[in-house]
Design a protein around this nucleic acid. Structure first.
Length: 491
DNA sequence: ATGCCTTTAGC
DNA sequence: CTAAAGGCA
């Protein structure tokens, strides 16, 4: 009996069928040789720490991939880790032909990936590696002093001047011919679709929540390659791209592309986006993503510790009540609460509002950025270690491209500036929807009669402010000043 | 080295 | 308009 020829699309790889180097070539080869595409997707929950919203996304992305492979008369199997044990079983049944994966840029995965790839190769299994879903190489892109860039602007200037960025018209991704040959070999074997013994249905991967809390996510997103292309097309075709720099900061406008989760799960490449959305202010945002990955690659400790070591002993507060109020969107500051509620409802938050709620957590509440990063990790559909880490350290002032310490976002000023009519607030804090725009940014300053007419009862149907911003600002400045004093009193 | 730059606040 | 840190060329 001929053994089945299996191509394992590794769980770390990208979830693209059309553009993943290995899998798309496998699909092409399968079609051309008139043989079914057989693939398996392995999930190892111990290695892949997914947040709740990410699990939901991954489930639906895999579901779409399963369907697309079925449409090609192929089959996608699912297996649940530990990954090494999954491979052991496959090898012992002579079911594993080739392993293909796209590299993951996060340091922890990259190391594990190399270990497993080495061990597979030692056992005679061909391993095909595709590049991570980035534009710049993680190694060797350095400033003129030979150091990792720590400020975005010079980084971006250097990137634009480099040969790495795929400007429109330049060569796009080309599949590697050697990889293609290897896959052709895989599919020239006699392949029959036999069930894999230890495979399981997608539903058994445990990615779906036990309690149904995902209605808001379902209404907001279409995970998978098709959804990604739809978003990109609608963004690039409309005037949203042209007006990106003027509209991107207004959270009530659809001024952004909302492609972050698709990028994170590898359902679309930055190169595809770059080519389709050729406008510098927008492409610059792809640059921030590159910057974040460079930083995490070169400073892997930043996922848990600040890049700037003087923040190691920063006197963060411990305030479970404050943290809870922040998470629930019950701080009493409408723009902050609106953002936190958008996050909870849709698994996403507008970037401007991410900065505002982030600043509120670390500067006003004086809570550690890690506690904010954890909440974002669990609730964001685009939760990404590099972006999350850089964003939180940026707003805390303890990371790269740090703002001067005295730069503390003022939630009222930010609200007036970026949600002038309170449209965003009204959407996510409906109990404030009747408040005139003069008062919606600071409901506690509203004259009692107008409050009553607007059916706003502070402390009852909308929380009182949990702290005074101006006092909190002074407290933060003091804490920062103290922590910068060379001589520490303790120890 | 000196000037530039930074998703800002507050007077 | 200034405050003001610090990476970068």
């Amino acid at each position: 009996m001929a053994s089945p020829s299996l191509l394992i699309h590794w769980f770390w790889g990208d979830l693209r069928l059309a553009h993943n180097h290995a899998l798309s070539q496998a699909a092409q080869a399968a079609i051309e040789s008139n043989k079914p595409l057989i693939a398996a997707y392995i999930l190892d929950p111990d290695i892949e720490p997914l947040g709740g919203a990410s699990r939901w996304w991954l489930h639906h992305s895999l579901k779409q991939l399963e369907k697309r492979i079925a449409d090609l008369d192929g089959k996608l199997f699912f297996m649940k880790g530990p990954i090494q044990a999954c491979f052991d079983t496959l090898i012992s049944k002579n079911s594993l032909h080739t392993v293909s994966f796209n590299q993951r840029p996060e340091p922890r995965y990259a190391a594990a990936q190399q270990d497993i790839a080495n061990s597979l190769r030692k056992r005679g299994i061909p391993v095909i590696e595709g590049p991570p879903n980035l534009m710049l190489p993680l190694e060797g892109f350095l400033n003129k002093q030979g150091q990792t860039f720590q400020v975005f602007t010079p980084f971006w200037k250097a990137a634009l001047a480099s040969s790495h960025l795929p400007f429109t018209g330049r060569e796009s991704f080309k599949p590697n011919d050697a990889r293609l040959d290897l896959l052709q070999t895989a599919f020239s074997l006699d392949s029959t679709i036999n069930p894999i013994e230890n495979s399981c249905p997608l539903d058994s991967l445990g990615l779906r929540p036990k309690i149904h809390w995902t209605a808001g996510l379902e209404a907001s997103w279409l995970p998978g390659e098709t959804g990604a292309m739809k978003l990109l097309e609608s963004f690039a075709q409309s005037e949203r791209l042209q007006h990106y720099s003027e509209q991107r900061d207004f959270p009530h406008l659809p001024g952004t592309s909302r492609l972050s989760a698709h990028l994170h799960f590898g359902e679309i490449t930055p190169q595809q986006i770059w080519a389709r959305a050729a406008s510098e202010p927008y492409q610059r945002q792809l640059g921030w993503r590159e910057f974040a990955h460079q930083l995490l690659h070169h400073f892997p400790h930043t996922q848990s510790h600040p890049l700037r070591s003087e923040f190691l002993h920063f006197p963060w507060r411990d305030d479970a009540t404050g943290l809870k109020a922040w998470r629930r969107g019950e701080t009493g500051y409408p723009i902050v609460d609106a953002g936190m509620r958008e996050l909870w409802a849709t698994g996403w938050m507008h970037n401007r509002v991410r900065m505002i709620v982030g600043s509120f957590l670390v500067k006003d509440l004086l809570l550690p950025w890690q506690s904010g990063a954890e909440w974002f990790w669990d609730t964001l559909v685009d939760a990404d270690l590099a972006n999350n880490t850089m964003g939180w350290q940026w707003i805390s002032g303890c990371g790269a491209d740090a703002a001067p310490y005295f730069r503390i976002f003022n939630p009222m000023l930010q609200s007036v500036k970026f949600d002038p009519d309170g449209e965003y607030i009204r959407k996510w804090c409906p109990e404030l929807s009747l408040l005139p725009k003069e008062y919606i940014h600071q409901p506690w300053l509203t004259p009692p009669l107008i409050l009553a007419n607007s059916k706003v009862y502070i402390g009852k149907n909308y929380p009182s402010i949990i702290l005074d911003h101006h006092e909190a600002r002074e407290r933060a400045l003091m804490a920062l000043k103290k922590s910068k004093q060379p001589a520490s009193i303790e120890k």
